[in-house]
Design a protein around this nucleic acid. Sequence first.
DNA 1: CTGGATCCAAGCCGATACTG
DNA 2: CAGTATCGGCTTGGATCCAG
Lengths: 126, 126
Amino acid sequence: MGTKQYTGAPEDADLMRADSLAREIFSDIANKWAFLIIEFLGERTLRFSELRNEVEGISHKMLTQNLRMLERNGLVERTVHPTVPPRVEYTLTEPGQALRATVDGMCGWTHKYLGRIEDSRRRFGA
Amino acid sequence: MGTKQYTGAPEDADLMRADSLAREIFSDIANKWAFLIIEFLGERTLRFSELRNEVEGISHKMLTQNLRMLERNGLVERTVHPTVPPRVEYTLTEPGQALRATVDGMCGWTHKYLGRIEDSRRRFGA
DNA sequence: CTGGATCCAAGCCGATACTG
DNA sequence: CAGTATCGGCTTGGATCCAG
Protein backbone atom coordinates (compact mmCIF):
# COMPACT_ATOMS: atom_id res chain seq x y z
CA MET A 1 0.00 0.00 0.00
CA GLY A 2 2.78 2.39 0.85
CA THR A 3 4.35 1.82 -2.54
CA LYS A 4 3.42 4.66 -4.75
CA GLN A 5 4.44 4.02 -8.26
CA TYR A 6 3.19 6.33 -10.92
CA THR A 7 4.87 6.83 -14.21
CA GLY A 8 4.07 10.49 -14.80
CA ALA A 9 6.44 13.41 -14.77
CA PRO A 10 8.34 14.22 -11.58
CA GLU A 11 5.47 16.42 -10.44
CA ASP A 12 2.25 15.67 -12.25
CA ALA A 13 0.48 18.47 -10.48
CA ASP A 14 2.72 21.00 -12.18
CA LEU A 15 0.95 20.11 -15.38
CA MET A 16 -2.33 21.25 -14.01
CA ARG A 17 -0.78 24.41 -12.73
CA ALA A 18 0.98 25.55 -15.84
CA ASP A 19 -0.29 24.25 -19.16
CA SER A 20 -3.60 25.74 -20.17
CA LEU A 21 -4.17 23.21 -22.93
CA ALA A 22 -3.71 20.38 -20.47
CA ARG A 23 -6.19 22.05 -18.17
CA GLU A 24 -8.67 22.31 -20.99
CA ILE A 25 -8.36 18.69 -21.99
CA PHE A 26 -8.59 17.66 -18.37
CA SER A 27 -11.79 19.67 -17.98
CA ASP A 28 -13.22 18.15 -21.14
CA ILE A 29 -12.66 14.59 -20.17
CA ALA A 30 -13.06 14.57 -16.40
CA ASN A 31 -16.82 14.20 -16.40
CA LYS A 32 -18.93 11.21 -15.61
CA TRP A 33 -20.50 10.68 -19.02
CA ALA A 34 -17.18 10.66 -20.80
CA PHE A 35 -15.81 8.17 -18.29
CA LEU A 36 -18.78 5.89 -18.59
CA ILE A 37 -18.61 5.96 -22.37
CA ILE A 38 -14.91 5.13 -22.29
CA GLU A 39 -15.54 2.33 -19.84
CA PHE A 40 -18.16 0.66 -22.01
CA LEU A 41 -16.30 1.20 -25.25
CA GLY A 42 -13.33 -0.40 -23.56
CA GLU A 43 -15.18 -3.68 -23.50
CA ARG A 44 -16.04 -3.69 -27.17
CA THR A 45 -16.99 -1.61 -30.18
CA LEU A 46 -20.52 -0.32 -29.87
CA ARG A 47 -23.14 1.32 -32.04
CA PHE A 48 -24.78 4.57 -31.08
CA SER A 49 -27.98 2.91 -29.95
CA GLU A 50 -26.13 0.20 -28.06
CA LEU A 51 -24.15 2.81 -26.23
CA ARG A 52 -27.36 4.57 -25.42
CA ASN A 53 -28.65 1.42 -23.76
CA GLU A 54 -25.45 0.58 -21.93
CA VAL A 55 -24.90 3.97 -20.40
CA GLU A 56 -27.97 4.09 -18.28
CA GLY A 57 -29.59 7.47 -17.89
CA ILE A 58 -27.72 9.28 -20.62
CA SER A 59 -29.81 11.34 -22.98
CA HIS A 60 -29.55 11.30 -26.74
CA LYS A 61 -28.09 14.76 -26.65
CA MET A 62 -25.46 14.13 -23.99
CA LEU A 63 -24.34 10.99 -25.76
CA THR A 64 -23.91 12.78 -29.08
CA GLN A 65 -22.17 15.68 -27.44
CA ASN A 66 -19.71 13.57 -25.51
CA LEU A 67 -19.00 11.32 -28.47
CA ARG A 68 -18.15 14.36 -30.58
CA MET A 69 -15.91 15.66 -27.85
CA LEU A 70 -14.12 12.35 -27.49
CA GLU A 71 -13.76 12.08 -31.25
CA ARG A 72 -12.38 15.59 -31.47
CA ASN A 73 -9.77 14.75 -28.86
CA GLY A 74 -8.88 11.55 -30.65
CA LEU A 75 -10.01 9.11 -27.99
CA VAL A 76 -12.78 7.61 -30.04
CA GLU A 77 -13.00 6.68 -33.69
CA ARG A 78 -16.28 6.91 -35.55
CA THR A 79 -16.90 4.66 -38.54
CA VAL A 80 -19.99 4.97 -40.68
CA HIS A 81 -21.22 2.00 -42.66
CA PRO A 82 -23.07 3.41 -45.66
CA THR A 83 -25.97 1.02 -45.39
CA VAL A 84 -29.60 1.73 -44.92
CA PRO A 85 -30.48 2.23 -42.21
CA PRO A 86 -27.08 3.71 -41.34
CA ARG A 87 -24.84 1.83 -38.97
CA VAL A 88 -22.34 3.86 -36.98
CA GLU A 89 -19.77 2.25 -34.73
CA TYR A 90 -17.57 3.75 -32.09
CA THR A 91 -14.22 2.34 -31.01
CA LEU A 92 -11.54 3.44 -28.62
CA THR A 93 -8.33 4.58 -30.25
CA GLU A 94 -5.00 3.77 -28.66
CA PRO A 95 -5.02 6.95 -26.56
CA GLY A 96 -8.57 6.07 -25.60
CA GLN A 97 -7.54 2.59 -24.55
CA ALA A 98 -4.71 4.04 -22.53
CA LEU A 99 -7.08 6.30 -20.66
CA ARG A 100 -9.41 3.42 -20.20
CA ALA A 101 -6.88 1.79 -17.92
CA THR A 102 -7.16 4.83 -15.69
CA VAL A 103 -10.94 4.81 -15.72
CA ASP A 104 -10.84 1.12 -14.91
CA GLY A 105 -8.68 2.02 -11.96
CA MET A 106 -11.38 4.33 -10.74
CA CYS A 107 -14.03 1.67 -11.15
CA GLY A 108 -11.90 -0.74 -9.17
CA TRP A 109 -11.37 1.92 -6.55
CA THR A 110 -15.11 2.52 -6.22
CA HIS A 111 -15.67 -1.19 -5.86
CA LYS A 112 -12.99 -1.57 -3.24
CA TYR A 113 -14.00 1.32 -1.02
CA LEU A 114 -17.76 1.17 -1.45
CA GLY A 115 -18.42 -0.06 2.07
CA ARG A 116 -16.06 2.38 3.66
CA ILE A 117 -17.58 5.28 1.78
CA GLU A 118 -21.04 4.23 2.86
CA ASP A 119 -19.86 4.25 6.47
CA SER A 120 -18.25 7.62 6.07
CA ARG A 121 -21.44 9.03 4.68
CA ARG A 122 -23.46 7.69 7.58
CA ARG A 123 -21.02 9.18 10.05
CA PHE A 124 -21.11 12.49 8.25
CA GLY A 125 -24.87 12.58 8.64
CA ALA A 126 -26.64 15.48 6.99
CA MET B 1 1.56 -1.14 -23.91
CA GLY B 2 -0.44 -4.19 -24.84
CA THR B 3 -0.31 -5.42 -21.29
CA LYS B 4 -3.56 -4.56 -19.65
CA GLN B 5 -3.44 -5.28 -16.02
CA TYR B 6 -6.21 -3.94 -13.86
CA THR B 7 -7.07 -5.30 -10.49
CA GLY B 8 -10.81 -4.64 -10.45
CA ALA B 9 -13.59 -7.17 -10.60
CA PRO B 10 -13.88 -9.45 -13.64
CA GLU B 11 -16.03 -6.89 -15.39
CA ASP B 12 -15.61 -3.45 -13.95
CA ALA B 13 -18.27 -2.06 -16.23
CA ASP B 14 -20.88 -4.20 -14.55
CA LEU B 15 -20.42 -2.06 -11.52
CA MET B 16 -21.58 0.95 -13.41
CA ARG B 17 -24.49 -0.93 -14.81
CA ALA B 18 -25.87 -2.40 -11.64
CA ASP B 19 -25.04 -0.71 -8.37
CA SER B 20 -26.79 2.59 -7.93
CA LEU B 21 -24.63 3.61 -4.99
CA ALA B 22 -21.50 3.06 -7.05
CA ARG B 23 -23.03 5.17 -9.80
CA GLU B 24 -23.75 7.92 -7.34
CA ILE B 25 -20.24 7.95 -5.90
CA PHE B 26 -18.81 7.84 -9.38
CA SER B 27 -20.90 10.82 -10.40
CA ASP B 28 -19.87 12.71 -7.28
CA ILE B 29 -16.17 12.28 -7.78
CA ALA B 30 -15.75 12.24 -11.54
CA ASN B 31 -15.59 16.01 -11.94
CA LYS B 32 -12.64 18.19 -12.65
CA TRP B 33 -12.60 20.17 -9.43
CA ALA B 34 -12.61 17.09 -7.25
CA PHE B 35 -9.77 15.62 -9.29
CA LEU B 36 -7.70 18.75 -9.11
CA ILE B 37 -8.20 19.02 -5.37
CA ILE B 38 -7.18 15.39 -4.90
CA GLU B 39 -4.16 15.92 -7.09
CA PHE B 40 -2.89 18.88 -5.08
CA LEU B 41 -3.71 17.38 -1.71
CA GLY B 42 -1.77 14.35 -2.82
CA GLU B 43 1.39 16.39 -2.76
CA ARG B 44 0.89 17.69 0.75
CA THR B 45 -1.58 18.81 3.36
CA LEU B 46 -3.01 22.19 2.47
CA ARG B 47 -5.04 24.92 4.10
CA PHE B 48 -8.24 26.20 2.58
CA SER B 49 -6.62 29.36 1.26
CA GLU B 50 -3.61 27.48 -0.08
CA LEU B 51 -5.89 25.17 -2.00
CA ARG B 52 -7.70 28.17 -3.35
CA ASN B 53 -4.42 29.44 -4.76
CA GLU B 54 -3.19 26.10 -6.05
CA VAL B 55 -6.35 25.14 -7.90
CA GLU B 56 -6.38 27.95 -10.37
CA GLY B 57 -9.78 29.26 -11.31
CA ILE B 58 -11.79 27.59 -8.59
CA SER B 59 -14.24 29.79 -6.77
CA HIS B 60 -14.70 29.98 -3.04
CA LYS B 61 -18.03 28.26 -3.37
CA MET B 62 -16.87 25.40 -5.56
CA LEU B 63 -13.92 24.73 -3.29
CA THR B 64 -16.09 24.57 -0.19
CA GLN B 65 -18.68 22.46 -1.93
CA ASN B 66 -16.20 19.93 -3.26
CA LEU B 67 -14.28 19.73 -0.02
CA ARG B 68 -17.50 18.92 1.85
CA MET B 69 -18.35 16.29 -0.72
CA LEU B 70 -14.92 14.71 -0.48
CA GLU B 71 -15.08 14.81 3.30
CA ARG B 72 -18.50 13.22 3.30
CA ASN B 73 -17.23 10.40 1.13
CA GLY B 74 -14.22 9.94 3.37
CA LEU B 75 -11.54 10.92 0.88
CA VAL B 76 -10.44 14.00 2.72
CA GLU B 77 -9.97 14.71 6.39
CA ARG B 78 -10.60 18.14 7.78
CA THR B 79 -8.75 19.27 10.90
CA VAL B 80 -9.51 22.56 12.59
CA HIS B 81 -6.85 24.23 14.69
CA PRO B 82 -8.71 26.33 17.28
CA THR B 83 -6.49 29.34 16.90
CA VAL B 84 -7.36 32.84 15.90
CA PRO B 85 -7.59 33.31 13.07
CA PRO B 86 -8.74 29.74 12.49
CA ARG B 87 -6.45 27.38 10.64
CA VAL B 88 -8.10 24.53 8.77
CA GLU B 89 -6.08 21.84 7.07
CA TYR B 90 -7.15 19.24 4.56
CA THR B 91 -5.44 15.90 4.09
CA LEU B 92 -6.10 12.88 1.94
CA THR B 93 -7.26 9.81 3.82
CA GLU B 94 -6.08 6.39 2.74
CA PRO B 95 -8.98 5.96 0.31
CA GLY B 96 -8.18 9.41 -0.98
CA GLN B 97 -4.54 8.52 -1.48
CA ALA B 98 -5.59 5.39 -3.30
CA LEU B 99 -7.74 7.37 -5.69
CA ARG B 100 -4.94 9.83 -6.10
CA ALA B 101 -2.94 7.15 -7.87
CA THR B 102 -5.70 6.99 -10.45
CA VAL B 103 -5.89 10.74 -10.86
CA ASP B 104 -2.13 10.80 -11.23
CA GLY B 105 -2.56 8.29 -14.00
CA MET B 106 -4.86 10.66 -15.78
CA CYS B 107 -2.41 13.52 -15.38
CA GLY B 108 0.31 11.35 -16.81
CA TRP B 109 -1.98 10.36 -19.64
CA THR B 110 -2.72 13.99 -20.46
CA HIS B 111 0.97 14.76 -20.47
CA LYS B 112 1.80 11.82 -22.68
CA TYR B 113 -0.86 12.40 -25.33
CA LEU B 114 -0.95 16.18 -25.31
CA GLY B 115 0.63 16.53 -28.73
CA ARG B 116 -1.46 13.84 -30.30
CA ILE B 117 -4.64 15.37 -28.94
CA GLU B 118 -3.64 18.74 -30.30
CA ASP B 119 -3.16 17.19 -33.73
CA SER B 120 -6.47 15.41 -33.53
CA ARG B 121 -8.22 18.64 -32.71
CA ARG B 122 -6.65 20.41 -35.62
CA ARG B 123 -7.69 17.63 -37.95
CA PHE B 124 -11.20 17.69 -36.57
CA GLY B 125 -11.43 21.35 -37.40
CA ALA B 126 -14.60 23.14 -36.43
C1' DC C 1 -9.07 32.85 7.75
C1' DT C 2 -12.87 29.86 7.04
C1' DG C 3 -17.36 29.14 5.51
C1' DG C 4 -22.40 29.66 5.34
C1' DA C 5 -26.20 32.09 2.78
C1' DT C 6 -28.34 34.62 -0.84
C1' DC C 7 -29.05 36.54 -5.34
C1' DC C 8 -28.88 36.24 -10.11
C1' DA C 9 -26.92 35.22 -14.70
C1' DA C 10 -25.12 31.71 -17.76
C1' DG C 11 -25.25 27.48 -19.57
C1' DC C 12 -26.51 22.75 -19.15
C1' DC C 13 -29.52 19.29 -20.36
C1' DG C 14 -33.92 16.99 -21.56
C1' DA C 15 -37.80 16.95 -24.77
C1' DT C 16 -39.28 17.46 -29.13
C1' DA C 17 -39.40 17.98 -33.96
C1' DC C 18 -37.17 17.42 -38.24
C1' DT C 19 -33.42 15.66 -41.98
C1' DG C 20 -30.76 11.89 -44.55
C1' DC D 1 -30.79 4.43 -37.21
C1' DA D 2 -28.00 8.41 -36.47
C1' DG D 3 -27.73 13.12 -36.00
C1' DT D 4 -28.82 18.32 -35.80
C1' DA D 5 -31.48 22.20 -34.13
C1' DT D 6 -34.37 24.68 -31.16
C1' DC D 7 -36.69 25.88 -27.00
C1' DG D 8 -37.43 26.29 -22.14
C1' DG D 9 -36.79 24.94 -17.27
C1' DC D 10 -33.86 24.43 -13.91
C1' DT D 11 -29.52 23.57 -12.08
C1' DT D 12 -24.94 25.39 -11.63
C1' DG D 13 -21.78 28.39 -10.16
C1' DG D 14 -19.85 33.25 -9.41
C1' DA D 15 -20.19 37.51 -6.69
C1' DT D 16 -21.21 39.45 -2.55
C1' DC D 17 -22.33 39.92 2.21
C1' DC D 18 -22.27 38.41 6.85
C1' DA D 19 -20.69 35.57 11.03
C1' DG D 20 -17.38 33.06 14.04
